[in-house]
Simulated scan of single mutants.
Amino acid sequence: MGTVYLGVSPGARRVAVKVVREELAQDPSFRRRFAREVDAVRRVGGFHTAPVVDAGPDDARPWLVTEYIPGPSLHEVLRTHGALPATTVRALALGLAEALEGIHACGLIHRDLKPGNIVVSGAGPRVIDFGIARAAEGTSLTTTNVVVGTRGFLAPEQLTGGPLTPAVDAYAFGMVLCHACGAAPFPGGTVLDQALHALPADLAAVVGDCLRHDPAARPTPTEILQRLAHSGEKPPEDWLPGAVRALVARHQAVLPAPVLAPRP
């Protein structure tokens, strides 16, 4: 949809500045949807998302500023270190469920939850790039019969053109956990029940329900949180293994010192 820059707020806080592509800025329907989505995303709170700082949906090039979260994506973590230990996957599950609970409470559906849209920070996982993607529908970025999302994390109804509900995020949540524990991508001919043996029993039961073909049979984020809370397992205070925490620290260390231009 555009370009993301590392910026600095007047108070010397680092932020992510997302500037919309010029061709999209010329589309009045995109501008209307973008403004609606910005308004909705502003209402999403919680510990596990990147809050909106400011936005300019009516400017010549619409833009959005969110908190900058220093840390690798979950995709980078898994590519570098492989499958995560059970305690980390359980903490990841709780954090993602809380994030989706907040997103859905604002009437939004992420629709592209995947390791690349999850930032791993020392304080917990952060979900990014939610809501705004819907503004691109019907513009030059999308055409009829083109699926919005990432294959491997799309619910069946996203592939068949069925109604989209928050249940698509539950399906993607289940797939993210499968990747995090090393069960996915599934080799050809793998039976789901066999793949889920890589997860702890309580998580395997939740993920199995999240991956049901019938959207109505998938649990909501609130139900996921309740089920995991009742499992009796509590994530440790330090949710990351040492090697991953070192990777997070390296991301924090490479940030340049903020340089503020003098005010006129």
Score class of each variant (00 low, 15 high):
Thr3Asp: 15
Pro166Trp: 04
Phe173Asp: 00
Phe153Cys: 02
Pro166Met: 06
Thr80Met: 12
Leu177Arg: 08
Leu92Gln: 01
Pro258Asn: 07
Leu203Asn: 02
Ala217Pro: 03
Arg227Gly: 04
Phe30Thr: 07
Lys114Ser: 14
Ser29Cys: 00
Pro185Leu: 13
Thr49His: 03
Pro10Gly: 11
Ala172Asp: 08
Ala246Asp: 14
Gln252Glu: 15
Arg250Lys: 01
Val52Ala: 02
Ala184Val: 06
Thr165Ser: 06
Val176Asn: 10
Gln252Met: 09
Leu192Asn: 08
Ala16Trp: 01
Gly122Ala: 14
Arg36Met: 05
Gly102Gln: 14
Arg263His: 05
Ala198Ser: 15
Ala12Leu: 14
Trp63Lys: 05
Leu100Gly: 06
Ala243Lys: 11
Glu76Ser: 15
Gly161Val: 00
Thr190Arg: 08
Ala55Gln: 02
Pro156Leu: 03
Ala253Glu: 14
Gly174Tyr: 11
Ala123Pro: 10
His179Lys: 12
Asp59Val: 04
Thr66Tyr: 01
Phe34Arg: 09
Val41Arg: 00
Glu98Pro: 08
Asp169Gln: 07
Gly7Trp: 09
Arg126Phe: 00
Thr144Phe: 00
Arg33Cys: 01
Cys178Pro: 04
Thr160Glu: 06
Leu203His: 07
Ala229His: 05
Glu37Gly: 08
Ile103Met: 03
Ala257Leu: 12
Ser9His: 06
Glu101Trp: 03
Ala184Leu: 10
Trp63Ser: 04
Val4Tyr: 06
Gly124Phe: 00
Asp54Ile: 02
Phe130His: 05
Gly152Trp: 01
Ala229Asp: 09
Val44Ala: 06
Gly45Ile: 08
Asp54Asn: 06
Leu113Tyr: 09
Gly7His: 08
Ser29Phe: 13
His75Ala: 15
Thr165Gln: 07
Pro70Trp: 07
Leu94Trp: 04
Leu96Pro: 12
Ala135Pro: 05
Glu137Asp: 05
Leu100Phe: 10
Leu199Ser: 00
Pro10Gln: 13
His197Ala: 13
Gly71Cys: 12
Val53Gln: 00
Phe130Ser: 10
Val38Arg: 02
Ala99Val: 08
Pro258Met: 10
Thr222His: 00
Gln158Val: 02
Ala253Gly: 07
Asp112Thr: 09
Ala86Val: 10
Ala136Asp: 05
His230Tyr: 05
His81Cys: 12
Glu37Cys: 04
Glu22Asn: 08
Phe30Cys: 12
Phe173Lys: 05
Pro264Thr: 04
Ala198Phe: 09
Pro235Cys: 03
Gly122Arg: 15
Val127Lys: 06
Arg111Phe: 14
Asp58Met: 08
His230Arg: 13
Val8Leu: 09
Pro236Cys: 04
Ser73Asp: 12
Asp54Leu: 06
Ser231Trp: 05
Leu211Glu: 01
Leu113Glu: 11
Val254Arg: 15
Arg151Glu: 14
Phe173Met: 06
Leu78Val: 14
Leu154Met: 15
Val44Thr: 01
Leu141Ser: 02
Glu101Thr: 15
Ser140Thr: 14
Glu98Leu: 11
Leu211Met: 06
His197Asn: 07
Val4Glu: 11
Leu78Asp: 13
Thr139Ile: 08
Gly7Val: 13
Thr88His: 03
Ala16His: 07
Asp59Asn: 00
Gly46Tyr: 04
Pro221Tyr: 03
Leu159Ala: 12
Val259Lys: 10
